[in-house]
Design a protein around this nucleic acid. Structure first.
Lengths: 189, 189
DNA sequence: CAGGATTACAAACCGACTGTCGGTCTACGA
DNA sequence: TCGTAGACCGACAGTCGGTTTGTAATCCTG
């Protein structure tokens, strides 16, 4: 089980890479399986052998993208001990990352509608949301009863901010606003 | 020009009503024009005479829904003078409204992906976002330079909260958390 | 190492769907 | 009364997602 498995994995990776680019460029609806096949030079049978359908292909792309994002964010906050500082660093890193149209279109815009909001939520729980909630809880600024909901709202705010930055809003101002937003949120007012 | 125009308007309304229900139930992708035609008893020609295509039909549904939402929120805050109280009342009203699956699926989940994030933003600007920004600005709690971005982030947080409530989260807790969130955001920490 | 089992891939094909187009009918205005 | 424009019809074409059948190569087992 080596040559065969390797070939399969290579094919999957190739399909994933091409699909990621096309989904990011033209969105889920605007991307046809046909186009993926044409660029890859593979047949329909090959694609449907590796992925159950268009949704499954999209979900694989989404999962891979989320994993890549998480790795970059972990890298941005490593070595920071203070939870509040970590939250800030992670947030800013995410806002900068989301400038990437791949992340925008796939993770933030199409994903909820394609795989369903619940499943998208569950996925985020395992990635960005998990980190946010952990860091936010560690600051101790939010009452336990509200922690979960505050983490959700904060993540939504961050995502929105990222989308705005990517649409030409001034990045420096957005980052300053984000810091202010965090400061208020963590205040004990 | 009366009977003819009336018939046309009635047909449009009928299509809008049926499409709204189907889009809310099965999402944009899961709803076929065919199904709309079947339920309405009309022909393809009739539908395409009134709406340029499936996207245009969706957009009309979206616009009508947003208008209905705005009306209900205006009703919820009328008579309130204090901006902070108005913001609170409007926010809670919106969280409760978004329990409606029609609003959920169409406005919050499918819309950005179907008509594009920019156009969706522009639409919201004319509706819910406009109100939020006005009320938030009137409280005077947010520096002018950050007002626009804070309004965006707040609206995103509210929408997220609404989606959570509709997925079975305890509504009372969510509303309490929302109040706490607002309090912190408006604090002068 | 022989042969069945499994895997990777190919290609024709199917059903469903969106959008188009020529045409009909009827209310309206001149 | 007659021409026009708007409301509506239904057949058709093109596209797309997914299925099915077939083939070759690799893997595992006796």
């Amino acid at each position: 089980m080596n040559l065969k498995a390797e070939r399969g994995a290579a094919t999957r990776d190739q399909l994933l890479a091409i699909a990621t680019r096309l989904f990011a460029e033209h969105g889920y609806e605007g991307t046809s399986i046909e186009a993926v096949l044409q660029e890859s030079g593979l047949s329909r049978g090959a694609l449907y052998h590796h992925y159950a359908g268009k949704d499954a292909l999209f979900e694989a792309v989404l999962e891979a993208t989320e994993a890549a994002i998480l790795a970059r964010i972990v890298q941005a906050v490593e070595g920071i001990a203070d939870p509040a500082e970590m939250l800030k660093a992670g947030t800013l890193a995410w806002v900068r990352l989301a400038g990437d149209p791949v992340i925008q279109r796939i993770v933030l815009i199409d994903a909820p509608s394609v795989i369903g909001w619940e499943r998208w939520r569950a996925l985020e729980e395992r990635y960005s949301f998990g980190m946010i909630k952990g860091a936010l809880g560690a600051t101790g600024a939010i009452p336990a009863a509200y922690l979960d909901l505050h983490a959700h709202m904060l993540l939504a705010a961050i995502n929105e901010s990222a989308l705005l930055v990517a649409r030409g809003r001034d990045q420096a101002t957005a980052e300053a606003a984000m810091e202010e937003f965090l400061r208020r949120l963590l205040s004990h007012g």
